[in-house]
C-alpha cells in the first residue's frame, strides 16, 4: 500500500480511488451509512469531514517532531475533537436546519477512523505538503463515496435529487432504501460493484 515516500501528487491520487477510504479501506462507516439517505446531508457531512481531516492533518504534520509515541493517539483525538467542535458550531451558525438533521453524527466525526488513520499513517510522518495533499485526496475520495451512496438512495428511494423530483411520478419509490436497512443494502451492492469493476480492470491490464 503506502510506499516509502510518494510525492504529494501521488498521495492525492491515492486517496481518490486506489485507497478510497470507504470502498477500499472500509473506514469511517458510521457517517457513511447514517447520513446518506439523500444527497444534501451526505455532501454536507463529507465537506465537514474533509474540513476536519484537512485541519487535523495540517496541525499534526506541524507538531510532528513533538509527538511522543505512546501519547500520539490521544493527541490526535483531542486535536480532532477541537476541530470538530469548530465545524459543529459553524454548521449550527450557518446551516441550522442541516445541523439539526445531521444531529449527533457531526460530533461523531471525532471517532471517524479515517481521520485518525490518516493522522497516523501520513500526517505524523510526512511534511506539510504531503499531509495537505493526502487530506484533500482522502476527503475527495470520501466525498465521492458518500455522494454515490446518497445519489443511489435518494434517486431510487424518493425519485429525487437534492430534493428536486427527477424521476416521473409513476416511479414506485423504493422506500426501504431511505430507511436504515437500505443503507446496508446499498453500500453492500455498491461495494460489490466497485470490487467487480476493479477486478475486471486489473484482469484487462494483466492480459495487455
Amino acid at each position: 500500500m503506502a510506499s516509502s515516500s510518494p510525492s504529494p501528487a501521488e498521495r492525492f491520487i491515492a486517496g481518490i480511488l486506489p485507497e478510497n477510504p470507504i470502498y477500499r479501506q472500509m473506514l469511517g462507516m458510521c457517517p457513511t451509512l447514517a447520513v446518506t439517505n439523500s444527497l444534501k446531508p451526505a455532501l454536507t457531512m463529507a465537506i465537514a469531514t474533509t474540513f476536519v481531516l484537512l485541519c487535523a492533518n495540517i496541525s499534526i504534520s506541524l507538531i510532528r517532531p513533538l509527538l511522543k509515541p505512546h501519547l500520539r493517539i490521544l493527541v490526535f483525538t483531542l486535536t480532532i475533537a477541537a476541530f470538530v467542535t469548530i465545524a459543529d458550531r459553524l454548521l449550527a451558525a450557518y446551516l441550522y436546519e442541516m445541523s439539526k438533521q445531521l444531529g449527533p453524527y457531526v460530533p461523531l466525526i471525532i471517532v471517524n477512523c479515517i481521520i485518525i488513520s490518516r493522522c497516523e499513517a501520513c500526517a505524523s510522518k510526512q511534511p506539510l505538503p504531503h499531509a495537505i495533499a493526502d487530506a484533500i485526496g482522502m476527503g475527495i475520495g470520501f466525498t465521492l463515496a458518500l455522494a454515490s451512496l446518497g445519489f443511489v438512495r435518494e434517486l431510487l428511494g424518493m425519485g429525487s435529487l437534492f430534493g428536486h423530483q427527477v424521476l416521473p411520478s409513476s416511479w414506485p419509490n423504493w422506500g426501504i432504501l431511505v430507511l436504515p436497512p437500505g443503507a446496508f443494502l446499498t453500500l453492500g451492492a455498491l461495494l460489490g460493484a466497485v470490487n467487480a469493476w476493479t477486478a475486471r480492470r486489473k484482469a484487462r491490464q494483466l492480459s495487455n
Partner: peptide, 19 residues
C-alpha cells in the same frame, strides 16, 4: 460471488438483519 466476499456480503446480511 467473488466481488461480494468479505465486507460486501456482510453489509447485505446486515441490511436484512436491520429489516
Amino acid at each position: 460471488p467473488k466481488a461480494l466476499k468479505g465486507p460486501g456480503i456482510a453489509l447485505l446480511v446486515a441490511g436484512i438483519l436491520a429489516m
